[in-house]
Simulated assay, not measured.
Amino acid sequence: MTRQITAAEAAEFFAHPSQRRGVDELALPEEGVVYWADGPVCGVFRDFCWPRVLDVHCGVKPEGWGKTVPHARAILEAVWHFYAPDLIVAQSLERNRAVLAMNRRLGFEVIGTMPTPERVVIQSWRL
Rank of each mutant, 00 (worst) to 15 (best):
H71A: 14
A72P: 05
A72W: 01
A72E: 07
R73S: 08
A74T: 01
I75V: 07
I75A: 11
I75Q: 09
L76V: 09
L76W: 08
L76D: 13
E77P: 05
E77W: 00
E77A: 11
E77G: 02
V79N: 01
V79Q: 03
W80T: 00
W80P: 02
H81C: 03
F82Y: 13
F82L: 14
Y83C: 07
A84L: 06
A84S: 15
P85G: 02
P85T: 00
I88R: 05
I88S: 02
I88N: 05
V89I: 12
V89D: 04
V89Q: 05
V89M: 08
A90K: 07
S92L: 15
L93W: 13
R95T: 13
R95M: 07
N96T: 03
R97N: 10
A98Q: 12
A98G: 15
V99E: 12
L100I: 09
A101N: 13
A101T: 12
N103D: 14
N103C: 10
N103L: 08
R105Q: 15
R105E: 14
R105M: 15
G107R: 06
G107N: 03
F108D: 14
F108M: 10
F108P: 10
F108G: 11
E109G: 01
V110D: 14
V110L: 11
V110S: 11
